[in-house]
């Protein structure tokens, strides 16, 4: 058997083990090469498919790179003003308590301008899921400092490295929300390796299951990369993330009640 015929044998419907979920639309993503958003979108879409909740799920997209998330997941969407996604999600779940509602927010959206909204949605224990994509930088506006930018990290607005004396310290949002009695499940994940993606998927499943059981708010931080903002290749970015981000933002579940 030649290599070509063998390939033809393998590539057939009955051998298919991994393909794009239909919950993910065919629209080409606008994200930069290697952007973690794509992986996270895919994982959320896969969980929505696995749990059979496509018709019952409403996503709330933020302002930032993922403002256009509604172009990629085939569900109903609301697009929020900068930082306000948890407020939209609050009203949506209160008015339609049988649905699954999630917000999808970056670090500028959630940790900076939307800090009040996320803290209070968490404190009220709204029955929603929050995806917090933390890559320590503003992507959409061109790589400025985020609240989660590491000390010394160079960004467009900290060209000599973040000086914590004048700009404050990188905010550990997951630790903060885990202290609030309203939160049920707070976990910090990543998506740079197959193993990390599998773990992330498990966490996402658990979060939506929490909604199903009316358990209240599930908060999933995903430590991510921004190769354009960090001015590295996607592969280098993953290495930089492991070396610099993971020690300050350690992975793992902070709270599971």
């Amino acid at each position: 058997m030649t290599a070509t015929t063998e390939l033809k044998n393998i590539i057939s419907e009955e051998n298919l083990i991994y393909s794009k979920t239909p919950v993910l639309l065919d629209n080409e993503m606008h994200y930069c090469p290697g952007c973690t958003h794509g992986v996270i979108h895919k994982v959320i879409a896969e969980v929505i498919e696995d749990m059979g909740i496509q018709e019952e799920t409403i996503g709330v997209s933020p302002v930032g790179c993922s403002v256009l998330a509604y172009n990629y997941l085939d569900i109903d969407w609301q697009q929020a003003a900068h930082g306000r996604a948890p407020a939209l999600a609050t009203a949506t779940i209160r008015l339609m308590p049988e649905k699954y509602v999630f917000t999808y927010q970056g670090d500028g959206d959630l940790a900076s301008i939307g800090c009040a909204e996320i803290m209070h949605a968490c404190n009220r224990g709204e029955n929603i899921v929050v995806f917090f994509v933390n890559n320590g930088i503003y992507g959409m506006t061109g790589g400025q400092m985020a609240p989660t930018t590491l000390e010394g990290q160079v960004t467009a607005t900290t060209p000599y490295g973040r000086d914590c004396k004048t700009t404050g310290f990188p905010m550990k949002i997951s630790e903060m929300v885990s202290l609030l009695p309203g939160t049920r499940f707070v976990t910090r994940q990543s998506a740079e390796t197959p193993g990390a993606v599998r773990k992330l998927k498990k966490a996402v499943k658990k979060a939506f299951a929490n909604t199903r059981e009316d358990k209240g708010i599930s908060f999933i931080e995903i430590v991510s990369t921004c190769s354009s903002g960090w001015k590295q290749t996607p592969v280098q970015s993953n290495e930089w993330m492991k070396e610099h981000m993971f020690p300050y933002y350690p992975l793992g579940t902070l709270k599971d009640e």
Binding site: I58, V60, Q78, A80, A81, R84, A87, L88, A89, T90, A91, T92, R94, L95, M96, A116, E117, M119, H120
Partner: peptide
């Protein structure tokens, strides 16, 4: 549903979310 929001900003954005549901 009656919700005391954390701010006027949150309140109007809750309205946005609720209105988006056709409520």
């Amino acid at each position: 549903v009656v919700v005391q929001a954390e701010s006027e900003v949150a309140a109007i954005n809750m309205v946005y979310g609720g209105a988006s549901c056709g409520k």
